[in-house]
Design a protein around this nucleic acid. Structure first.
Lengths: 185, 185
DNA sequence: ATATTTGTAAACTATATATTGTACAATGTT
DNA sequence: AACATTGTACAATATATAGTTTACAAATAT
């Protein structure tokens, strides 16, 4: 177990994990979260907070936080295994799916927030408009703003449809997954 | 100029700018950068560092940094106007294009980084493998790692094609822009 | 019932990121 | 040539984010 090549393999594995973490960074995911995802991914089996703590060298509390965040992002799940008292966590094993989950979480959130704001905001402009007695300048600016709103709404509608495009898997019809060459020696 | 409705319009405009900044946040863009983009966008005309500084209430140094970052991200440009000594900056006026630019910058960077790492890493595994005299366990793990690499490469190839899919505008064939209803009163 | 183990809240500390002020080189003005 | 203006490098400060420690409630074991 402690031989040279085995250590090298271990080290190489860790590099791979770092690469996964790095990839996550492009989603604005913190290095630690990415690393934990990588660790569980490479482990192939669900892991406990203690194991993760051991593997990262970080506190169990932090692992708890990170795991919860991953669950919120839909890239990890708590699994039950009878006889095991500790909570076990798995991660999505499919990179594409992880990509999509993150993309979706990210944008759905933005969409909701935007929608929420939208109504109040539009109403407000209309209120000003109906105030009566507006200088032509102001009147003009208000119309510009209303136009802007339309453009903005159209844009968000697009994002919304884009999210669906990913979620439904339709994206793969036009940007197909690449087949991985089998290799058995 | 100082009348009530004009102030309300001004305020509403600022809300819109905040919304734009908020949207940017989904790309991991800092609030300040988003706000500056929003400010220039709403201004419709190129702006100078001093104007931005005035508009944000932040230092000119910061504006300089932010503007440069935006240029790196391909969502802003320096424009020249004869007779004007100060540098002027515009931003992309098309939301879709901004979305795409950010998406591209983000992932191209990740792709490059990954590619760079890839060769070294794969070579390393092969080196271990050719070392000879490996325990069956280690041998097995190495094969697993090589397989993992294949999967990873396929995934990155997909991302790469996905980026092209956006960059080329093909995405709009399948997730079309929504037409904004004209409105003239 | 009592004692252990587990996960997480809450308050704290450390580290990273955002922002500013000063200084200066480059360019334009008189 | 002397002077003013502009943009940014660099060091210093402030703020936000990541991580730890302690404490405790809920669940399990003895």
């Amino acid at each position: 177990m402690g031989d040279v090549s085995s250590n090298m393999v271990e080290q190489t594995k860790e590099h791979f994990i770092e690469k996964i973490a790095d990839n996550m960074r492009a989603f604005g995911i913190s290095p630690t979260l990415g690393r934990v995802l990588g660790i569980i991914y490479m482990n192939k089996e669900p892991m406990t907070l203690d194991q993760l703590s051991e593997a990262t060298g970080m506190s169990k509390t932090r692992m708890s936080q990170v795991v919860r965040e991953m669950i919120d992002l839909n890239i990890a799940d708590k699994v039950f295994e009878k006889g095991v008292r500790k909570d076990l966590y798995t991660v999505e094993q499919d990179y594409y799916q992880t990509f999509i989950s993150l993309f979706i979480s990210n944008w759905r959130q933005a969409i909701n927030k935007s929608r929420l704001f939208e109504q109040k905001w539009r109403q407000r402009i209309l209120d000003i408009k109906n105030e009566g007695s507006l200088s032509p300048d102001v009147e003009n600016e208000i119309n510009e703003l209303l136009k802007e709103t339309q453009i903005w709404l159209a844009y968000y509608d697009w994002i919304s449809r884009l999210v669906d495009f990913f979620e439904s898997g339709e994206v793969f019809k036009h940007v197909p997954k690449k087949r991985v060459p089998e290799f058995e020696e």
